[in-house]
């Protein structure tokens, strides 16, 4: 592989922290995210609907776009050879324009499965100002050596849930 700007499995240890990502959320962040994910529901672009009909303080970031933020956060760290296996969400609160959204993560486990895939399990927290809004548990495959490419795995060679 000539694409070298990717994390290797041997470089990762349990307890390791991922670099923090901080983003200033604007109304454009929310609306662009909703439209990019084809989510036309008004609470993600219509202030009057969000506040006066739904009783929230403002329009807020939708779930599919939060998934895209989590993916970006993970692959910023792993590089392009990092391949997502699973992602589990728990939504607790909303992200509004004006918030500073901060993502932090830490490695909870590393393993190599029977097919030779190098897995890294990560817990991620998405906070808006001082509120925990969403937690995410993700499993991502990274190369175990310079010749390994997780994206080349198919069929029995790719079993993200370990079933």
């Amino acid at each position: 592989m000539t694409t070298t700007a990717s994390l290797r499995h041997g470089d990762v240890t349990t307890g390791q922290d991922l670099p923090k990502l901080s983003v200033q959320v604007t109304a454009t962040t929310v609306v662009l995210g909703a439209l990019a994910s084809r989510d036309w529901r008004p609470m993600h672009h219509d202030y009057d609907f969000a506040v006066n009909r739904q009783g929230t303080q403002d329009i807020f970031l939708n779930t599919p776009n939060q998934a895209a933020w989590f993916e970006r956060y993970l692959t910023d760290w792993t590089g392009p050879l990092g391949r997502l296996g699973t992602m589990t969400f728990k939504m607790q609160d909303s992200v509004f324009p004006g918030n500073t959204m901060v993502m932090t993560g830490s490695v909870t486990d590393t393993s190599v499965d029977a097919a030779g895939v190098g897995w890294v399990d990560v817990d991620i927290s998405l906070m808006a100002d001082d509120r925990t809004c969403t937690t995410c548990t993700a499993r991502v495959a990274v190369p175990t050596n310079d010749d390994d490419n997780p994206w080349s795995r198919r069929g029995d060679q790719w079993n993200p849930r370990g079933d």
Binding site: M1, T2, T3, T29, W69, P80, L84
Partner: peptide, 29 residues
């Protein structure tokens, strides 16, 4: 663009060709 994701898999055809045998969509889409 909405999440400022600069992963070259989605922007650079040469990287996509090498890593994923051509352009793919972000999995979370």
């Amino acid at each position: 663009a909405s999440v400022e994701n600069g992963n070259p898999l989605f922007w650079d055809d040469a990287v996509a060709a090498e890593v994923t045998d051509g352009p793919i969509a972000p999995p979370t889409m």
